[in-house]
Structures are given as structure tokens and as C-alpha cells.
Simulated scan of single mutants.
Amino acid sequence: MPLRLIDRLIRHEAAGGVLLILAALAALLVANSQFEGLYATFLDSVLAITVNDHGLEKPLILWINDGLMAIFFFLIGLELKREMLEGKLRRPRDVVLPGLAAVGGMALPALVYTLVNWGNAETIDGWAIPAATDIAFALGILALVGSRAPASLKVFLLTLAILDDLGAIIIIALFYTADLNTTYLMLALLPLAVMLVMNLYGVHRVAPLLLLGTVMWVLVLKSGVHATLAGVATAFLVPMTDRFGKSPVHRLEHGLTPYVGFLIVPLFAFANAGVVLTGLTLDQVLAPLPLGISAGLLLGKFAGIMGTVWLLTRLGMAQLPHGATWSHMAGVACLAGIGFTMSLFIGGLSFSDLHLMNQVRLGVLAGSGIAAVLGFTILMLAPRQEQAGAPATA
């Protein structure tokens, strides 16, 4: 009986989001307790994999952020490929509303952050931090709303968040690359080329492909390009259908999802959400960095998504999701302001200074937390689907 109950809890749509919240709360508690020293020592522990003094030697926090998160991005890549070939991103007309809303929901938060931090050379590089949406967290909160929200709303939010992640991947590739080592970058093209050939021939064995992807990850890491992008590239080269008619993409996605959702992402949250609150003052909360992040997630996301949806419906280019009202859209626009995992990740790429990273965590947790509460409240107060009637278009 207990095992059956645990299995039902794990399978619940909200489970991933709830576990993320618990991991973040655990990090906050530990970082502000007598165990803060152990927490810092744990994350700073050096793990090395070397052969004749050549290899990788990094603190545990970087193994989590560069290594385990590459698996997270690998799963995102698999989801993107599946959605583009078979799912919600297959037909262009189904992508217009959430796609353009995603663009607005990334541009406005970045603009808000930039305005708040304009002229501050120390913090301006964090402009992309509030542009991201945490899929698991946002969908987890929406699942808690239950039947009060129409099913079409989940499809809209999922599509928007997927495209949001794609935008974040592009931003990381273009703007968060360190000094390039062209030798390693050229070497990374070799396993990439072999994987491309395997994809074209529909090779059904994924182990060699994953091994080549790991080699590419190491080479990309040493090249200066952020290594998580190797995970996305590897995912896109997994054959959708092999020569036996089976789908390696489906098989890998199904197998990886529980490990990413219930181990990798919560571990990342625990390692990165430990903001130190000791001595925190109102001036620190309202400093440009945390204020820009929280304002971007709350105001920028909401204005970008709602403004884009309103404009498209006003021009007759799109309609609200079936059964959804403007109240529903307002709630979803708030939920999209839950940046959390992706925002913390981009924050880590933006700043190496511990003081600035503490401000990043403060801004992300404050903005994401308020966005979650607001989104949940608005959706719970919105009319039920059967009361909503036909969706409004203006």
C-alpha cells in the first residue's frame, strides 16, 4: 500500500514542482543555519577525473551546473525534437499564439532588468536572467489548480515554456560563451559528425551515440562554449525512428524524465537556491540586481505575454485557447514568471562573484515565489471552464 501511494504521488503532475519547492526551501534552511559551513564545503568539494594529470577538475557545484544540467538540457532537446516532429510545434498555426507570447515574455523581462540596471557595469550582464520560465515549476502549480483551468491552458503554457527554453538555449549560445579555444571546438565537430551519420542511417543503438555525446561535452567544455549546449546538440541527433520502426527519442525521454525531474533538477535547486538571509536589509532587497530580476519576472513576463496575446487577438491573428478567459490568461502569464531553475542557471553564467550570486538567488526566489502565488490565486478565482463560455477576442 505505501509503495502504491508513493507511485501515485510521483506520477502526479504537480510532483516535480512540489519537489522543486521543497529542495529550494531545504537550501534556504541549510544556508541560514548552523550547517551553512557544511553546505558551502559540500558544494566547494573538488572532484577530479584525470589521466596523467590531464582531464577535468572542478568543484562539485560546477559538476552539477555543467555536468548534470547537460543531461537536463539533453532532455529538453529530446522534448523539443519530439514536439517539432510529432507534437505541438509541428503545425505552424498552433505555434503562433504561444510562440509570439514566448518572444514577448522574454523580451520585456530583459528590457525591465536592463532599465533597472542601466549604467551599472557590474550587473548589466544579467539581463537574460528573468527571461526564462521553469517548465516543471509552472506546470506543477497549474496542476494544483486542477479542473478549474481548461485543458487547453496547459497546452498553451507547455508550448510557451518549451519555446521559452529554446530561446534560453539560443541566448546561452550567443551571449554566455567564454573565450573560445578553437582547437577544442574543432575537435568537438568530430563526434558531432559521427553522430550525424548515425542519425542519417537510423542507428538503433543509443549507447554509442551517448558515448560520443559525452566526448563532445568534454571538448565543448574545454572550448569555452557552455557545455550544456552539447546536451542539446546530442539530443537533436538521436534518431526519431530507427530502422526497426522504434523511437530512440521516445525511449530516452521516457527513461530520463523521472531521473531529471526527481533527482537532477531538485539537486540543482538545492545547490543553487541557498541565499544567505543573515543581515538582509530593505536596501539589499531593493538593490538593482535583485530588483531587476524580480521586476522582470513579475512585471516583464506578465506585460510581455498578456500584451502579445491581446494584440494578436485584437488583430484577429489568433484566439484565446478553447474555454479560456482573460482571467485564465492572466494567471498563466503570472505562472510564466516562475523562472527558478533556468533563471538560477543563467545567473550562474552571468556572475561568478559570491555576493552578486546571493543577490541573484534573492531576486529569483522572490520573483518566482510571488509569481507562483499570484498565478495560483488568479486561476483559482477564475470562472470554471463550463462557466467561461466562448473565449473573448478583445
Results as ranks from 00 to 15, higher is better:
residue 200 L to N: 06
residue 198 M to S: 00
residue 310 W to L: 12
residue 297 L to E: 10
residue 188 A to M: 13
residue 315 L to M: 13
residue 219 L to C: 06
residue 196 L to I: 12
residue 246 K to H: 10
residue 296 G to Q: 09
residue 231 G to N: 02
residue 245 G to Q: 02
residue 211 L to R: 01
residue 274 G to H: 08
residue 276 V to I: 07
residue 232 V to E: 11
residue 302 F to C: 08
residue 246 K to A: 10
residue 250 H to C: 02
residue 228 T to R: 02
residue 216 M to Q: 07
residue 240 M to W: 00
residue 287 A to W: 06
residue 293 I to S: 06
residue 217 W to R: 04
residue 190 L to N: 05
residue 279 G to A: 04
residue 190 L to Q: 01
residue 204 H to F: 10
residue 267 L to K: 05
residue 238 V to R: 06
residue 239 P to W: 02
residue 241 T to I: 09
residue 258 P to G: 09
residue 279 G to L: 07
residue 263 L to Q: 08
residue 192 L to R: 02
residue 229 L to F: 12
residue 319 Q to C: 04
residue 277 L to S: 08
residue 255 G to V: 00
residue 256 L to S: 10
residue 186 M to G: 15
residue 192 L to D: 11
residue 279 G to H: 01
residue 229 L to P: 11
residue 299 L to M: 14
residue 317 M to G: 03
residue 291 L to F: 14
residue 302 F to E: 12
residue 308 T to E: 04
residue 203 V to Y: 05
residue 224 G to P: 09
residue 207 A to I: 15
residue 214 T to M: 12
residue 205 R to Q: 15
residue 319 Q to W: 03
residue 242 D to K: 00
residue 313 T to D: 08
residue 238 V to K: 06
residue 266 P to V: 03
residue 289 L to T: 13
residue 260 V to N: 11
residue 210 L to E: 14
residue 317 M to C: 10
residue 188 A to E: 12
residue 281 T to G: 03
residue 201 Y to G: 13
residue 235 A to N: 11
residue 187 L to W: 15
residue 248 P to G: 02
residue 197 V to Y: 02
residue 212 L to K: 01
residue 317 M to S: 09
residue 297 L to N: 08
residue 204 H to Y: 09
residue 241 T to E: 09
residue 247 S to I: 09
residue 258 P to Q: 12
residue 307 G to N: 05
residue 197 V to E: 00
residue 294 S to A: 14
residue 318 A to Q: 02
residue 202 G to C: 09
residue 206 V to P: 08
residue 304 G to E: 08
residue 273 A to E: 14
residue 309 V to N: 05
residue 239 P to Q: 00
residue 206 V to L: 04
residue 229 L to V: 00
residue 277 L to Y: 00
residue 253 E to W: 03
residue 251 R to Y: 11
residue 215 V to H: 01
residue 314 R to P: 07
residue 318 A to C: 14
residue 187 L to I: 11
residue 307 G to M: 06
residue 302 F to W: 14
residue 277 L to P: 06
residue 268 F to A: 05
residue 283 D to L: 05
residue 319 Q to A: 13
residue 232 V to Y: 05
residue 236 F to Y: 15
residue 215 V to E: 00
residue 288 P to H: 12
residue 209 L to R: 07
residue 300 G to D: 12
residue 307 G to I: 12
residue 312 L to V: 14
residue 217 W to E: 15
residue 217 W to V: 04
residue 195 M to Y: 12
residue 218 V to D: 01
residue 197 V to C: 00
residue 277 L to N: 04
residue 209 L to Y: 10
residue 211 L to P: 10
residue 230 A to N: 06
residue 233 A to M: 14
residue 277 L to H: 05
residue 255 G to K: 08
